[in-house]
Amino acid sequence: MASGVETETQWRTAARLSNQQLVEAPVEGQLGMSVDELSPAGVRTRMPIPVGELAEAGGGLEVATSVLADTAAGVALSAYQGHGGPTIELRLDHVAAPTGQARWLIAEAAVLHEAAGAAYLAAVVRDDTGQEVARAAGHFVLARGSRGVASPPLPNSSAGEPAERGGPASEMTDGLFRTLAPGGDPADWVLSASEWLANARYDVHGGVLMAIGQLAQRRFQEADDASAALAPLRIETDYLRPVPADGGELRCRTGYVRRGRSFRILRSELARADGQLAAVVNGLWSSAGSSIR
């Protein structure tokens, strides 16, 4: 039976190996995501806040928050059952913008319960000044036969130390944000499912699909009413099937479900090159004025 010291060492090793996997994953590697803490109780992850004109054009904060929340929950599930599982649905509630002094987004995530073949996870995203930025919760596929906390992986001699990371994210994100830069009709946005948008399985990252829906909804509303002070309150995504990151067409169609005087509900449908619906993103927005971006 392993001692407490041995177990702690194994979990530190597991966190280091998780960092190596994130460095090698296309989206997380570009954004500089890393794991600070990993244990049966949950994980603590971080990502530098993207800056610069390219990050602004490509929706840097929207992308970073969505990817961080989705990935943090996935890493927490991996610690819980020994490996990750696909996201079934994820809800992101926006709380506030990061402070002007903030350089990092930090997410803490954990499995809350299991039900009917799914694990329910929650994550809180804060900046490095302690400001709460967002809360996320959703269901992920729970592997059959999973029974509570899995043992952390043992050291792998082929895995090196992860690259040093320092915020803010900059030139590494060029491919990601260039792919997400605005262009064309915001109601019918066609972009490439390129490798820059991929997760470790080389499907388009679930957090990126959520971000695409949110970006499309913002641009759709701005084209409709350029003077509106728009703020996302809730972005909710149902994942129906994977989108291969093979350079094929990814189409995002967006429209109003209800356009109220102060609050609006929008729906974005993301379809693969074969026409199959891959994800549905529903957003609740305020046009009453707010600082949340």
Rank of each mutant, 00 (worst) to 15 (best):
T7F: 05
Q10E: 12
W11D: 09
R12C: 08
R12K: 14
R12D: 14
A14F: 12
A15Y: 08
R16Q: 15
R16H: 08
L17W: 13
S18C: 15
Q20L: 09
Q20T: 11
V23C: 10
P26S: 10
G29N: 10
Q30F: 02
Q30S: 11
M33P: 00
V35W: 05
D36E: 15
D36L: 14
P40C: 09
P40R: 08
A41H: 10
V43H: 08
P50F: 10
V51M: 11
G52C: 02
E56W: 00
A57S: 11
L61M: 03
V63W: 04
A64K: 09
S66Q: 03
L68C: 04
T71E: 14
Q81T: 09
T87L: 10
I88E: 07
L92G: 08
H94M: 12
P98N: 13
P98H: 12
A102P: 00
R103H: 10
V111Q: 08
L112E: 15
L112V: 14
H113P: 01
H113Q: 11
E114P: 03
A115K: 14
A115G: 09
A116S: 14
L121M: 12
L121G: 07
V125C: 05
R126E: 14
R126N: 11
D128A: 09
D128G: 12
T129V: 02
G130T: 07
G130D: 09
V133F: 04
A134F: 11
G138P: 15
L142F: 07
S146A: 15
S146E: 11
P152W: 13
N156P: 09
R165H: 15
P168H: 11
E171W: 11
D174W: 04
R178W: 05
T179M: 07
L180A: 05
G184P: 04
A193G: 07
L197C: 06
A198S: 10
N199I: 10
R201L: 15
H205Y: 13
V208Q: 06
V208A: 03
M210N: 11
L215W: 00
R218D: 01
R218E: 03
F220E: 03
Q221F: 00
E222P: 02
A223H: 04
D224N: 01
D224M: 00
D224P: 02
D224W: 05
A226T: 02
A229R: 11
L230A: 03
Y239R: 03
R241Q: 13
A245D: 01
G247T: 05
C252L: 02
R253G: 04
G255Y: 00
G255L: 02
G255W: 00
V257C: 01
R258M: 06
S262E: 06
S262V: 01
F263E: 06
A271S: 15
A271K: 03
R272Y: 00
G275R: 04
A278K: 02
A278G: 07
N282S: 14
G283M: 01
G283E: 01
S287E: 02
G289D: 01
